[in-house]
């Protein structure tokens, strides 16, 4: 049995949390008396809400603020050296590249939700290009992308900090090439990629 009133189903957690005003809560409760589907769902949600998280060991929450502050101080005092990104594999997308060859020798694309996908003509004679990547107005990565071999690998030197990698929102800017919005998933995939590659020079 199903209930067609999906809006009621979506509001059941509010009834569970007792966060609805009297009249609205009354209407939902009336509905639950006549609709076995929603009543069953409310029962499931009630049981779900009753599942408790085990208490961590004694002192865990007392110690957390101190641990966080110590980590912050460590990060503040840590040096922020240059990182070298040794090689980023480029993915060849024939369809996209064919359309872009007339316009540019090297294109960089970001596909929303899939992380950065770099698209280029597989040609070793492409000159280096200046690229800046930023989130909102902050430039995070700036450097020359240089194609290093015909396999499609490229190298760039960037100044990259842990702080930079902690951004949560923003846009992806590649100066002189494209400006593309970036969703959070893509951003973090990108972050993950960079985070796994840097080596201290």
């Amino acid at each position: 049995m199903t209930c067609k009133k999906k809006d009621i189903s979506l509001r059941l957690p509010d009834l569970l949390a007792d966060s609805l005003r009297g009249e609205e809560a009354g209407k939902l409760r009336e509905h639950l008396e006549t609709c076995s589907c929603c009543a069953e769902e409310f029962r499931v949600l009630s049981n779900l809400a009753a599942l408790e998280v085990p208490e961590p060991e004694a002192g865990f929450f007392d110690e957390m603020p101190g641990k966080v502050i110590r980590s912050i101080r460590e990060e503040k005092t840590a040096s922020r050296p240059s990182f070298r990104l040794p090689a980023i594999e480029l993915k060849w997308k024939a369809g996209l590249a064919a359309a872009s060859l007339a316009a540019a020798a090297l294109l960089v694309f970001l596909l929303p939700g899939t992380g950065p996908v770099l698209v280029q003509k597989p040609d070793n004679n492409i000159p280096p290009i200046s690229v800046a990547i930023g989130f909102e107005t902050n430039i995070l990565i700036e450097g020359d992308y240089k194609v290093s071999d015909v396999s499609g690998a490229l190298e760039l030197d960037v100044k990259l900090t842990e702080d930079d990698l902690s951004r949560t929102t923003g846009a992806f800017l590649i100066r002189g090439i494209e400006y593309l919005d970036m969703d959070v998933d893509a951003l973090f995939m990108f972050e993950e990629e960079l985070g796994s590659i840097p080596q201290r020079s």
């Binding site: 980590s71 842990e162 902690s166």
Partner: peptide, 13 residues
């Protein structure tokens, strides 16, 4: 813990 540290350094955002 890591989330709090990230939050601290992202507070300006």
């Amino acid at each position: 813990q890591r989330a709090f540290v990230k939050a601290y350094f992202s507070l300006r955002n």
